[in-house]
Design a protein around this nucleic acid. Structure first.
Lengths: 348, 348
DNA sequence: CTGTTAGCGCTTTCAC
DNA sequence: GTGAAAGCGCTAACAG
C-alpha cells in the first residue's frame, strides 16, 4: 500500500467502468448515471482513493491550482495571526487551501517564499509586505495573471489591489472621541504633508473638527517626520505655543510614541495629563504603550475582506486593481479611558 | 504572456538544446556542461520561466511534493502562531513550503483540511489536534506512508510521532521553584490517577520533593477531574486538612484556574496568600490568570523540533513513530513573583 | 555530455 | 451515457 497509489484507473477497473466515467463522477457531472455514480463512489471509498489535485491541475489549461498564498511580515504579532485566520476562513469555504509564510520583515525571504509559491501554482496572493518592499516586486506576478492583494501596508505605485485602514474615518473618529471627552483644542501631529495618506488623515481630522463645532485652527497642525523622533519634535513645538492643545491625534503610532516621549520629558503623563491617539500603521501600539488610544482595524475582518477581494478577481479572470479601505475602530484602553475622563473633568 | 505558460521546451528551443538538458540544469546536475548551463539559465531568466513543481511531482514516482501541512487548533492563540513560525523556519530552510490551516477546535474542519492537504500531496503533517480528535483519524495518513507529528496535545493510542511538554521535568521544576521561595508544604492537585500523564507529572513532583529535602506526604496529593471544577473541589478538600499546604502544583492549567476560584471563595488571593503553579495543557494561562506561575514550553522551539522530527522521517523513508518531550520552563509573572516572595518572608 | 522516447494521473474531445 | 486516445510539463531511462 505504501508505494502503490490508487488511481482513477484502479477504481474504474473495480467499478467496471472506464477512466473518463470516473473522472466525470469526480467532478459531479450530471451526465453520469445514478447507479454508476454510487458504484464508483463505493469503489473509491473501498480502495481508499485520494484525488490527485496536482495531476488535475496539470491537465487543465491555465494550470491554476486551488491554492492561495498568504505572506505576512510578522506572524508573531497577533494582529497578523488574526489576519491569517480571517483569510483562512473565506479561503477554506471557497474550497481553496492556504499557503502561509512568515517573512519576519526580511525582503529576501519574502522573495523566496513568493517564488516558491509561484512554482506551486498559486492562483492568488495576499501579502502584508515586509518593510522596503518595492512596488516592482510584484510585477512578474501580475504579468503572469496572478491576482495580488496587498494588505495592511500600502505599496506606493503598485498596480495591485489593496486593503488598508480607512484613513479619513479613522482620524475623524478620533476627533469625535476626544471632543466627547471634553477636549476643545485638539492637535494633529506628525507626518509629511505631501503624501496621499497624510492628506486623507488630515482631511478626516479637519472635517470632524468642524463637524463637532470646534473652530479649525491651522496652528494645531504640526507636521514632522512620521517617526518616533518626529513625534517628540512635534509635541515639543506644540507645547511651546501660547495656547497649547490638551489632546493630539497622531499621524501614526510611531509619532504617537514620540509624543508620549516628549510629554514625559516635560513631566506630563500621556493619557492622564494629555490625551493622545495613535494610528495603527506599524501595529505595535497594542503592546507597546498601554495608556494610548489607537485607531485600529479588526484584523480578522480585514483578512476576510482581503480574501474576498482576491477571490473576486480570481473568479472574474482578470480585473482592474481595486483599492478598498477597511473600517476602523477606536481602541480605548482601560488605563487610558479613566485618565482621559479625568482630563475632561478638569477642563469642564 | 497571460495564457501562454513558458515551459522547458520553450527554453530548450531558445537555448538551442533539448528538453532533458534543461531538466538537468534545473536539478543542478553535474552532468551538464558549464557553458550549456549558463546559456540555459540565461534563457530561463529572459523568458521568465517558472518551474512547474506540480508536473515534476507528478512524474516522480511516489509523487511526494515539497509541501508539509501544519494544522493548529487555534491560530488566534499566540502560542500556536509562534509554533507555526518555528515550524516555518526549519521547513523553509529545508526547501519545503508550509500549508497552514486553523481548525478553531472544529473536528470537522480538521478532517476537511487534512483531506484537502492529502489531495495536494503533502509529504508530511504536523498537527496540534482539535479537542476530541481520535487516534484513528490519522490511520489513513500513516497507512499511505505520510509521516505525522502530533504536537502540544498528546493523542492516546495513535501510532504517530509526538512532541509534548516534558511532564516529569515540569512538575519537578515547579517544586524546586516553590521550595526556593520557602514553601515547605507543597501539594499536588488535580488529575485522574490512572493516566500516563498523571503518573509522569506526579513522579516529577515526588522526585523533586525528595530532592529538595522535604518529606514526602501522601496527604498532599489530591486528585480530581482535570477541569476547573475539579480544581475548585481539590483545593476545597485540601484546605480542610489539619495542616494545609501553602502552595500547589496543579495537574494542568484548568485545574489551576479552579484552584484560584476556590482560593478566592475562601477569601484568599492566589499568588499572594497561596502560591499556585499551573501546567500549560490548554495554553490559555498566559492571558487568563496573570497572577499565576506556569510550566510552559517555548512555542517556537517546539515548532522547530516538531519540524525537524518530521523532516527526519520524510528523509528516512518510513520510520518508527518517535515520542519526544520538549523542554519546559517556568514562567513566573511579575505580579506573581513579588507576591510569592512575600509569602516566603511570612513563612521564614 | 546531449537527444529521444515514454509515461506520471488526470481531463477532455470525439466517437460509439 | 460511456469508451478510446491525446496530452498538460516534467523526469527517467536509454541511446548516441
Amino acid at each position: 500500500m505504501a508505494g502503490g497509489r490508487v488511481t482513477v484507473i484502479d477504481i474504474a477497473k473495480a467499478a467496471g467502468v472506464s477512466k473518463s466515467t470516473v473522472s466525470l463522477v469526480l467532478q459531479g457531472s450530471p451526465l453520469v448515471n445514478e447507479g454508476t455514480r454510487v458504484k464508483v463512489s463505493a469503489a473509491m471509498r473501498e480502495l481508499g482513493y485520494v484525488y490527485n489535485r496536482g495531476a488535475a491541475t496539470l491537465r487543465q489549461t491555465g494550470a491554476k491550482s486551488k491554492i492561495i498564498g498568504v505572506v505576512v511580515n510578522d506572524l508573531t504579532n497577533s494582529f497578523f495571526a488574526e489576519l491569517a485566520v480571517g483569510v483562512d476562513m473565506v479561503v477554506q469555504s471557497a474550497g481553496f487551501v492556504q499557503f502561509l509564510s512568515n517573512t519576519s520583515e526580511s525582503i529576501d525571504r519574502q522573495r523566496e517564499v513568493i517564488a516558491s509559491m509561484r512554482e506551486h501554482g498559486i492562483s492568488g496572493l495576499i501579502v502584508s509586505p515586509a518593510r522596503a518592499t518595492e512596488a516592482a516586486d510584484f510585477k512578474p506576478l501580475v504579468a503572469a495573471g496572478i491576482p495580488v492583494v496587498v494588505a495592511v501596508r500600502s505599496l506606493p505605485g503598485a498596480k495591485v489591489s489593496s486593503i488598508v485602514s480607512d484613513n479619513h474615518e479613522g482620524t475623524a473618529a478620533a476627533v469625535r472621541h476626544l471632543a466627547s471627552l471634553g477636549h476643545r483644542r485638539i492637535s494633529f501631529l506628525g507626518g509629511f504633508p505631501n503624501t496621499a495618506v497624510f492628506a486623507e488623515r488630515l482631511t478626516g481630522y479637519r472635517d470632524a473638527v468642524v463637524e463637532v463645532g470646534l473652530g479649525f485652527d491651522d496652528e494645531l497642525i504640526v507636521s514632522s517626520a512620521p517617526s518616533r523622533a518626529g513625534g517628540a519634535d512635534a509635541i515639543a513645538r506644540t507645547m511651546a505655543m501660547g495656547n497649547p492643545p490638551t489632546a493630539a491625534v497622531c499621524f501614526n503610532d510611531a509619532v504617537a510614541f514620540g509624543v508620549c516621549d516628549g510629554l514625559r520629558a516635560r513631566g506630563m503623563e500621556p493619557g492622564r495629563d494629555f490625551a493622545v491617539v495613535g494610528f495603527d500603521d506599524v501595529i505595535e501600539a497594542q503592546t507597546a504603550v498601554p495608556a494610548l488610544t489607537t485607531i485600529s482595524v479588526d484584523p480578522q475582518g480585514m483578512g476576510r475582506r482581503a480574501a474576498q477581494l482576491l477571490l473576486k478577481q480570481i473568479n472574474a479572470g482578470k480585473v482592474e486593481a481595486e483599492n478598498v479601505t477597511a473600517a476602523v475602530r477606536l481602541v480605548v484602553r482601560e488605563s487610558c479611558g479613566a485618565a482621559q475622563r479625568k482630563s475632561r473633568e478638569e477642563l469642564a
